[in-house]
């Protein structure tokens, strides 16, 4: 019994395994079709992210790719949360393409990673989003239940 999400993820995995990902993106684990981990790093010399590697967690629902995956940064000893005006210090990412409106089923794990890569590369502001502390302390919602308000087209 395989739903369409399983089929599609199987294909993505097979492609990743045979074709390897673009530079700066690495698959860490994909033991099931619900949760994958990937590492990304930026490729240029942006001082904010130099020599750092970041761990991403993807969670897929049975509706993937009709619904977006839940993508967050994970904090580990050697995997910090990148500083960015749209990334909260608990790893939650405010990015329109991960929301219901911005998502399109033609996106995939690789394209999401590349978007995040370029989101970091293009950033020069060494800051967290406004209200980060309050949000990190108070938020009990899953990322997909949060009403993000995408107001900033510059970063």
């Amino acid at each position: 019994m395989a739903g369409f999400a399983t089929k599609r993820l199987g294909k993505e995995l097979s492609k990743i395994n045979s074709n390897s990902l673009p530079p700066g993106i690495e698959l860490v684990s994909a033991d099931n079709f619900e949760e994958w981990f990937l590492d990304i790093r930026v490729l240029d010399n942006n001082p904010l992210y130099l020599n750092e590697i970041y761990r991403l967690k993807f969670r897929f629902s049975a509706q993937y790719p009709i619904e977006p995956p839940e993508v967050t940064f994970v904090k580990l000893a050697d995997r910090p949360i990148p500083i960015h005006p749209h990334i909260y210090s608990n790893g939650i990412i405010c990015l329109d393409l991960l929301g219901q409106q911005g998502w399109s089923p033609v996106q995939n794990v690789e394209s999401v990673c590349m978007s995040l890569q370029s989101m970091l590369t293009g950033n020069s502001r060494n800051e967290r989003p406004a209200g980060d502390e309050e949000f990190v302390r108070a938020n009990r919602l899953r990322p997909k239940d949060i009403d993000f308000y995408y107001d900033d087209n510059n970063v």
Partner: peptide
């Protein structure tokens, strides 16, 4: 009544 972060008001 979930506290919403300021960044995120409902549109």
């Amino acid at each position: 009544h979930q506290p919403q972060p300021t960044h995120y008001q409902q549109p």
